[in-house]
Design a protein around this nucleic acid. Structure first.
Lengths: 349, 349
DNA sequence: GAGAAGCGTCGAAGCGCTTCGACACCCGCC
DNA sequence: GGCGGGTGTCGAAGCGCTTCGACGCTTCTC
């Protein structure tokens, strides 16, 4: 293993000079810099992460807490995770992967041990038990038992109370509203919402409820009828859900789907029942782009900007490290892409 | 931030004693241990990871390299990653998430900097460029430019040459054979294989080719006709692929599918063409359990044991850390679960 | 009852790096 | 020609922990 000292000796300078070449925190003459860089290359030097962390009390690591469950919106999670990892690298950070398993203890452990400089939390619940540890800022919060002095953190998702927190998320309320608007414009009056699995609502993962808020609010404003039904993914569950919906509201012509694994089953079932999409029935999905494009009918959809969310989260966090920008809620504006699954309601031009 | 020294002072012992209480590397009287543990609790002490790594030259971190692509077998990747993370925690390790993006450089960086004690690589290609850096053991290898002195590593996947490497994977060759056998037993004579996307074969990700080996070998032995067609996921691609297959081999009654995102489209298309599953046509999938269960027809399938793979990879790696066990190839035996998508060929009891 | 053998604890020496203050030197200026 | 102010480099002091050898005490053995 090559050390700083060896590089210094090889280049004929002192250790501190090598360090300054590496960090750029003091000016170094071009000549010296080149000699040092050459030595680094020749010896194949890599700075020791532990020593660095110890001396500088910065680990250059970002912790990412992902949910333990692998049963829902997996592709979204994965995309976010990858976006976080790659974006972090461009800022010189590595990513530590934590699962929700440990719960709040993981926050304490990571913060306390200096394993990471900050953390990004995914799948935040409305009243997440990890939040009290993370709130910064407010004088009220200061008094509480928080982690050391500010463990910088960014949430992907939106808890009920965002005081002292930085959050990044899609604006799900606007997303809901957008879907309803689109269907309303095409003359649909009776809309059914295929929601996430009941468990998602029970956990109070905010996004599902916020979407519902948006859907309901807009429907009310526009005078539409809206029926919401949670749905486990899969064909069987969807069959049951759909039957109930059509039983209760036979006149339904517009569907909004927020459960990836219900999308294809829904299309199959509609087809099977002789309801053509988009001639008889319109479907709008809230899902990753790829799902929308690969479905058996190319779906009109609001994309979940997973990459963007991951990227923004990292950037917010890095900004915090650098003392820039404080607590902030970043809500990404939804964009609805019209594809082949939606059109005028029957009997409308 | 609380330090070891503060704990020591609080407990009225020396720093080294506290350290030994923590590590258990020397015997400590029950009395002293309790005093120390109490102080640790009262002060909320967390050992500093950097200092620890520096002093012990062990980081207690495992690096996990996942593929950058988010376009295929995502759920499998995610499940493996989560299994790795949770298993690692039970052994006292954290997981550093690396994307394939950096390529071999990531291996050098992590190994050289002591960021991790070892690594797990996913999505290994047959002749992966990261491998030369990782081979241990063999005297021939010793001569090559390897990373320091052995960066312990475990691959998930199986490269062409496994000398000096430890690998964990599903036995895809046996998997292929198993699928063919199942169909053969039911009297199917003409079998079509819907493979992964062409890109997967071009990259020489071994698993796809090994599956094909198994399929072909067994088909030859049993005298069956086998047609293999790669297929991008999605409805449209599947439609084209299926049309070609049925054009070329109209008598096809058995399908083996190895592409998650082709499964549902295939079922939909068959249905649409009036071919009943399993009465007219049998389908066997190689996919995660959940996909098989959630499909519109409950699929006979060989499950991809993602969790098991992640767990085993970590255990192999930890064994290496502890000097136990050398290079080894762990191939998990496939298990075929019969569900509702396969049965006797038409005209067979 | 003296010596051997453990056991439990301590002190000190680093691990490889960052960073602060000091210092030498060179430039330009009055 | 001396002085102020940059600029580039160095030395040394830690960062918080692990670990080795040493040491004193108790217990055992003959």
């Amino acid at each position: 293993m090559v050390t700083l000292a060896e590089v210094a000796q090889h280049a004929g300078v002192s250790a501190s000079t090598v360090s300054y070449v590496l960090s750029g925190k003091r000016s170094i003459s071009a000549n010296t810099r080149q000699r040092v860089e050459r030595s680094i290359r020749e010896l194949g030097y890599h700075p020791n992460a532990g020593a660095r962390a110890l001396a500088s009390s910065r680990s250059n690591v970002i912790a990412l807490m992902i949910p333990l469950r692998t049963d829902m919106y997996v592709p979204v999670m994965m995309e976010i995770a990858i976006a976080v990892a790659t974006t972090a690298r461009t800022h010189g950070y590595d990513v530590l992967l934590l699962t929700g398993e440990e719960g709040p203890d993981a926050v304490r452990r990571v913060a306390g041990s200096g394993l990471a400089d900050g953390m990004i939390l995914m799948d935040v619940e409305l009243d997440d038990e990890r939040l009290p540890l993370l709130r910064g800022g407010g004088p009220a919060a200061r008094a509480e038992s928080r982690v050391g002095d500010d463990q910088p953190a960014v949430l992907i998702g939106l808890p009920a109370d965002t005081t002292g927190l930085t959050c990044v998320d899609l604006d799900f309320k606007a997303t809901g509203a957008l879907c309803v608007e689109h269907l309303a414009e095409h003359g649909h009056r009776d809309i059914a919402v295929i929601g996430e699995a009941p468990a998602v609502y029970e956990r109070h993962t905010g996004f599902a409820e916020r979407t519902l808020d948006g859907l309901r609010g807009r429907a009310r404003e526009l005078g539409l009828r809206l029926l919401h039904r949670p749905c486990e993914g899969g064909y069987d569950a969807m069959a049951v859900t759909l039957a109930r919906i059509l039983d209760e509201r036979p006149g339904t012509t517009g569907f909004v789907v927020q459960n990836e694994s219900a999308v294809e089953p829904l299309l199959a079932l509609l087809r099977q029942q002789g309801r053509a999409v988009p001639e008889d029935v319109s479907v709008v999905a809230i899902c990753p782009e790829q799902v929308a494009v690969q479905a058996s009918v190319r779906l009109t959809s609001v994309a979940i900007p997973a990459q963007e969310m991951g990227r923004r989260a990292v950037e917010q966090l890095v900004a915090k490290f650098e003392g820039r920008g404080g607590d902030e809620v970043v809500l990404l504006a939804p964009e609805l892409t019209v594809r082949a699954s939606s059109g005028p309601a029957p009997g409308r031009p």
